[in-house]
C-alpha cells in the first residue's frame, strides 16, 4: 500500500512540476532585463480553449524593416537588434545569427525564429469585350476578401496565389489574452486607432522576451 501511495504522490508531483514549467523563466526580475516598446499590428482573435486574445504582428517581424539582414533559413534562430528612437519606440536595426558582439547601451537583441508565413495574393479581374481578362487591383492577405461578395457577375473573378514569405516570429510575445469585460472597449480602440498599437516587452540578456502590456493610442491594457 505504501508503494501505491508513493507512486500516486510522485504522479501528483510530476503534474505540478509540468504546470510550473509552463511560465518558467517568464516572471523575471525587472532589474535583469530591459523594458522596451515595440510597434505592432493587432487583430482580435478567439481561441476555443483560452478565450479572446489579440494577435500581435510586430513591425520587427518583417525582415524588410531591418537595414542589415543576412540570408534567412527557415526554422533558424536569429536575433533582431532594435534601438530606441526619439519617440520612445524601439525599431529594427539589423538581424544577427548570434549574440557574439556586445551591444551599445540603447540597443537590445530579441530572440526570434524564421518561419515561412505564406502570403496570399488576390488579383481582382474583369473580362474585357474581346474575352481577355484584366486585373483591376491586386491585394494581399486573407482580409482582402472580407467585404467582397461571394457571388460575382460572370465578367468578374478573383485569382489567388500563395507565395512563400520568411518572417521572424517571437512566439512568447505574439498573443495577448483579453478579459471578456474589456473586449468590447479594446475592439473599439483597435477600430479607431489601428496604427497606434504598441506592446511593452521585457527582454533579458539572452534575448528572451516577455510581454508586459499593450497600449492603444493612450489607453494601456495591463492584465
Amino acid at each position: 500500500m505504501n508503494k501505491t501511495y508513493a507512486g500516486f504522490g510522485l504522479a501528483l508531483l510530476v503534474q505540478v512540476v509540468l504546470l510550473a514549467a509552463i511560465p518558467w523563466g517568464r516572471v523575471g526580475d525587472a532589474s535583469t532585463g530591459q523594458t522596451i516598446w515595440l510597434e505592432v499590428r493587432a487583430s482580435d482573435r478567439q481561441d476555443v480553449m483560452q478565450g479572446p486574445y489579440l494577435d500581435l504582428d510586430y513591425e520587427i517581424s518583417d525582415p524588410k524593416q531591418f537595414a542589415e539582414v543576412p540570408a534567412l533559413n527557415m526554422g533558424e534562430k536569429v536575433y533582431a537588434v532594435v534601438r530606441q528612437t526619439d519617440s520612445g519606440v524601439w525599431r529594427g536595426l539589423r538581424v544577427e545569427g548570434d549574440l557574439s558582439t556586445p551591444l551599445p547601451e540603447n540597443h537590445v537583441a530579441i530572440l526570434g525564429a524564421v518561419v515561412d508565413r505564406g502570403l496570399e495574393i488576390h488579383a481582382f479581374l474583369h473580362e474585357e469585350a474581346d474575352g481577355s481578362w484584366t486585373a483591376d487591383s491586386v491585394m494581399t492577405g486573407r482580409e482582402a476578401l472580407k467585404d467582397r461578395p461571394v457571388h460575382r457577375p460572370e465578367d468578374r473573378a478573383v485569382a489567388t496565389a500563395w507565395v512563400g514569405r520568411g518572417v521572424i516570429v517571437y512566439r512568447d510575445i505574439e498573443s495577448y489574452f483579453v478579459p471578456e469585460s474589456r473586449r468590447q472597449q479594446l475592439a473599439e480602440d483597435l477600430r479607431t486607432h489601428p496604427e497606434e498599437v504598441f506592446a511593452q516587452v521585457r527582454v533579458d540578456e539572452l534575448g528572451r522576451a516577455t510581454l508586459l502590456q499593450v497600449r492603444i493610442q493612450e489607453r494601456v491594457y495591463d492584465f
Partner: peptide, 30 residues
C-alpha cells in the same frame, strides 16, 4: 491552457496536449 493564458502564452495547441498526455500517463500508471 489557463496558466498559459495568464502568462499570454499561445503556442501550437498540440504542445499543450503533449504535456497533458504526460500528466495523464503518470496518474494512469500510479
Amino acid at each position: 491552457f489557463l496558466i498559459a493564458q495568464m502568462y499570454h502564452l499561445h503556442g501550437p495547441p498540440h504542445n499543450a496536449f503533449g504535456v497533458w498526455t504526460l500528466g495523464a500517463l503518470v496518474v494512469a500508471y500510479a
